[in-house]
Amino acid sequence: MASSLLVSFLLLSFLSFASPLPSDTILDAAEILSDSGFVSMALTLEIVSQTLTVQSPSLTIFAPNDAAFSQAGQPSLSLLQFHFCPIPLPLESLKLLSTGTKIPTLLSGHSLIVTSSPSSDQISLNNVKITGGSPIYDDGSMIIFGIEDFFDPNFGLPVPIGSPRSTPRCGSSSTNGSMDFPGVSWFEGASAALRSNGHSVMASFLDLQLEGFKEPTMMTIFAPVDQSMVNPMKNVSVFLRHVVPCKLLWNDLVNFDDGTVLPTYSNGFTITVTRSDSVLMLNGVPVFFPNMYFSDPLVVHGLNEVLAVQEKPKEMAELFYWTGEDGDQMLLGNDEF
């Protein structure tokens, strides 16, 4: 379990960015990339360094080889962001990550997925192999690995490009805190995903809901990491505050307008969707692991913080939106459910 939580612990350690990487580091890395046969990525790193590297004081960069650049052409800025991880990941740490572990990137809402096992001699992310037996560059703050092709940002997404996205349907949230949970098989999958990604406290809360199953329903769980949960057992309502009575995939969330309000199973507590510099925020907290787990009735998204109560007029706290099949939104009051 410790190896499964490695990425979450590392990222939390680097959330408070102190300063960008020094320019000397970028120049040294670019020179070594070029000398190692990654000329296209070396030139690209120099060009985008002022744009991408200022976002973090440390990075792991996955560099496609020159053949990949020749075939795909010059990548977009967003595609390059998908190849930059905001934490240093030594080779030894990558080897410890279990299959399915998600690695954050600078592309908002997109994570790399480990597709190799710790017992494998070859490490792969998004089914793309890391080449060579060691990093191309490693000074502790910046680590660069060679890869045989560009990563696909759509790898592992539940809704392929061109297919219909699910229609979110938010029903009423229970006033007494009871919930109709999906089938046990879906529950077990969600609980396992939570535990393997550093959300054991929320998984434990989910375990406690096994008693009293009713008819299956749809729901979305926004799960804070364990480190953000202070004395969680003294405030069991924290679980209900992070569960929405409808299925909302990442593609659904990013298409909501700013100010959209979602109901929860905690009576009177709502979640407001906003954006800050294009980053999707829920009550001011960004989604860290989109689509951590998803099944027919259930979706789990990971958060770095607990959702806090938002300051708003009482009458606004009693309203939320519902999205119909045609995509139109309707503002509803709690008394309409």
Rank of each mutant, 00 (worst) to 15 (best):
1 M>K: 11
3 S>L: 05
4 S>V: 00
7 V>R: 01
12 L>W: 11
16 S>G: 11
17 F>G: 12
19 S>I: 11
19 S>H: 08
20 P>K: 06
22 P>S: 06
23 S>L: 12
24 D>A: 15
26 I>G: 01
28 D>T: 12
29 A>W: 04
31 E>I: 10
33 L>D: 04
33 L>C: 00
34 S>E: 15
36 S>A: 08
37 G>H: 02
40 S>R: 12
41 M>G: 04
41 M>L: 12
42 A>F: 03
42 A>W: 09
43 L>D: 15
51 T>R: 15
51 T>F: 12
54 V>W: 03
61 I>C: 00
62 F>D: 02
62 F>M: 11
63 A>N: 01
63 A>I: 05
64 P>I: 02
65 N>S: 06
66 D>Q: 05
67 A>Y: 03
68 A>S: 15
69 F>H: 07
74 Q>D: 10
75 P>D: 05
76 S>V: 00
76 S>L: 09
78 S>C: 11
79 L>Q: 10
80 L>I: 13
81 Q>E: 14
86 P>G: 04
90 P>G: 06
93 S>D: 13
93 S>R: 04
97 L>Y: 05
99 T>P: 03
107 L>N: 02
108 S>T: 14
113 I>Q: 13
118 P>T: 03
126 N>H: 12
127 N>R: 10
128 V>Y: 02
129 K>H: 07
130 I>Q: 07
136 I>R: 06
144 I>H: 04
149 D>V: 01
151 F>V: 07
152 D>S: 14
152 D>L: 06
152 D>W: 01
157 L>M: 13
158 P>S: 13
166 S>E: 15
170 C>T: 14
171 G>P: 00
174 S>T: 03
176 N>T: 12
176 N>C: 12
177 G>T: 02
178 S>D: 09
180 D>H: 11
188 E>H: 10
189 G>M: 04
191 S>G: 05
192 A>G: 08
195 R>W: 04
197 N>V: 06
198 G>M: 02
207 D>R: 01
208 L>P: 10
210 L>A: 09
212 G>D: 08
213 F>W: 06
213 F>I: 13
220 T>K: 01
226 D>V: 07
228 S>M: 08
230 V>F: 15
234 K>A: 11
239 F>V: 07
239 F>A: 15
240 L>M: 06
250 W>G: 09
252 D>M: 03
253 L>G: 01
253 L>H: 04
257 D>R: 09
258 D>T: 10
261 V>S: 12
265 Y>M: 15
268 G>Y: 00
269 F>K: 03
271 I>F: 09
271 I>W: 10
271 I>L: 12
278 S>D: 12
281 M>E: 08
283 N>H: 04
284 G>V: 03
289 F>N: 08
289 F>W: 11
294 F>N: 07
295 S>N: 08
306 V>S: 03
310 Q>S: 09
311 E>N: 11
311 E>L: 10
315 E>M: 07
316 M>I: 09
319 L>F: 02
323 T>W: 11
324 G>K: 09
324 G>V: 03
324 G>C: 07
330 M>H: 08
330 M>W: 12
333 G>T: 02
333 G>Q: 00
335 D>C: 01
337 F>K: 00
